[in-house]
């Protein structure tokens, strides 16, 4: 399941670009690899980040996956619902399971299209 209207990173994050904002989550592949998510480490709103900074993490019982900032930006919003129901990431990774909204000045570079991400996944197997 790789929605066509999103962009992707090799760290298995998806991005929804909107003018000066980008919404970030983890892909269906990533949530399946992790298993049942038990905790999401969310950043503080207004936190300013450089590209590739760790902005948070997604934990399952036996694994943890960091979330990286795809480009410089400021945290505009976080998905508070994940605090009590982290399993939203398992149930709806591309919707209710979004993680943060980053306010950006320039669009991030070197992202993968849905097709490219699918190819990247296939190559890995």
């Amino acid at each position: 399941m790789i929605p066509k209207d999103l962009l992707y990173t090799e760290e298995h994050e998806w991005l929804r670009l909107q003018e000066n904002k980008v919404i970030i989550g983890i892909t269906d592949f990533a949530q399946k690899e992790l298993g049942d998510v038990v905790f999401v480490d969310l950043p503080e709103v207004n936190l300013v980040l450089e590209a590739n900074d760790v902005l948070g993490g997604v934990e399952s019982v036996k694994a943890v996956s960091d979330i990286y900032a795809p480009c410089p930006g400021r945290i505009a919003a976080v998905n508070e619902a994940l605090t009590d129901t982290p399993d939203l990431i398992n149930e709806d990774p591309y919707g209710e399971g979004w993680i943060v909204e980053l306010e950006i000045e320039e669009a991030p570079k070197n992202l993968l299209s849905a097709a490219e991400y699918e190819e990247f996944l296939n190559k890995g197997e």
Partner: peptide
Amino acid sequence: TLQAREQHIRRER
């Protein structure tokens, strides 16, 4: 529980 904090999973972090 909460083992994802620990060294055997998170290693240097």
